[in-house]
Design a protein around this nucleic acid. Structure first.
Lengths: 244, 244
DNA sequence: CGTTTAATTGAGGAAAGTCAAGTGAAGTGG
DNA sequence: CCACTTCACTTGACTTTCCTCAATTAAACG
């Protein structure tokens, strides 16, 4: 873990984005904090960098800080006896992780790509939350958003068909990349096939086969393993909607 | 929906319980709010009663209020095209629901048993959260707790074996009833077999068969369909732990 | 350029879903 | 109070789907 001085970075401070909890739905994620709030958080934060593949923390370890991602992708996962693991969530820029604990982290966290993040000591965060109701309110909005994300994940995994699970997964990733889309309409998958399998609860083999089937059905096109384009939006959405 | 005047009820106000987010783990849920905070929330709240089976709200409906359960059990679910539904969560006393929305409810909610709850208008809650950082902080703790619950649900559903899913489900219910346990060591299941199936993502038939298998294996005993006792705790926990 | 790792593809077996029928319990009305 | 209706639950036979194991191909890395 490399710690960087704040003033070397362009961002004004850690921010969280979420689909607004109150008020009209705009259908996409927005930054929650005001510049003043960002600055306040930045005072208690340091910037850290994690190289791809680095384990940021392990489950059951004492919680000393929470993280807010600036760039990169993180996975939160639980190890299971068989030596394998289940991924609870992928975290993207403006997401927070390391928060949902009880003195100990409940998941392990690992950098899927190279990651830049703000590190906020738990004690400092607690102090800020008691001092500043506005920051607290926006954290609540973010947590509601994460709660919806988790709900979607549970819903995704509860589906029976592999195709539907994968389609819904692509839709979720697309939602995250919606703001900073490259304009090509492509979805970029920063994680491995195994990671996808561990998230959607399918073996890597079935993930592979299902991508193939989606492609041969003409629903998606694949420039390479990591760039997926949704070709037939109507049928694709239909697949996400229907039950199996 | 029946609205009751506040002063007819013994409870001092809506409370939320959770496994503490900060500080040492005590392994069980505790009330978060101080008496003063409860009173403050009570000022903005009314008490409502829902008869068993009543739909409290539907997904996509405008969010006008959140609810805190005093007694009874509620299910939050999504309808799926096939006419069936998937249950996202069961809510118990001192749980909050109706919060994780964006101007609209994202789930439907229905009373599994008769329910008494506090109803807090969304506008009043928002105002309170901006005024009182301490209430905000405790709401954050509660949301972290719910986040862990959702995480567990996704993990549960991602398991392959029906027995493991059911065992983990029983463990989750037991955790909720741990505080107000009857001392007999029994777990009470207030919901139907279909509801269980819609929560753990199994057909009611498999739920039935799996309960039976757990019983014939000697892991559990069943006084009747709704009273389950865990007989062999060691083997039971082992089943929960192991992957399949 | 060679080695290692990830990803794909194929064949066989286990597990849950579906359909259909039977059993039990709860609530209703005479 | 009892017979009846109804709904939830259970049980069995059959089909579908995914997991496992194994082999091959492609890609990433030094």
């Amino acid at each position: 873990m490399i710690t960087v001085k704040n003033n070397h970075i362009a961002t004004p401070g850690p921010n969280l984005s979420a689909v607004p909890a109150w008020g009209p739905s705009v259908g996409r994620r927005l930054g929650l904090f005001s510049n003043k709030e960002c600055a306040r958080l930045a005072n208690s934060a340091t910037i850290v960098r994690f190289t791809k593949g680095l384990t940021i923390y392990r489950e059951r370890q004492d919680t000393d800080a929470v993280f807010v991602i600036v760039t990169g992708v993180v996975k939160a996962y639980k190890a299971i006896p068989a030596g394998s693991q289940r991924i609870a969530a992928f975290l993207f820029p403006d997401d927070v992780f390391g928060l949902s604990e009880e003195g100990k982290y409940t998941n392990s966290a690992k950098a899927v790509t190279s990651v830049t993040a703000y590190r906020i000591p738990a004690s400092a965060l607690k102090r800020l939350l008691f001092q500043d109701a506005s920051i607290g309110f926006h954290v609540i909005c973010k947590l509601c958003d994460e709660l919806r994300g988790m709900e979607r994940h549970a819903f995704l995994v509860s589906r029976r068909g592999a195709l539907g699970r994968l389609a819904m997964f692509l839709q979720m990733i697309e939602r995250y990349e919606g703001c900073n889309a490259s304009g090509t309409g492509e979805v970029y998958l920063p994680m491995s096939r195994s990671d996808i399998g561990e998230y959607v609860a399918l073996s890597p083999e079935v993930v592979s086969r299902s991508f193939r089937r989606l492609a041969t059905l003409g629903l998606i096109g694949m420039r390479d393993k990591r760039h997926v384009k949704i070709l037939d939006r109507v049928q694709f959405d239909e697949l996400v909607r229907q039950a199996p």
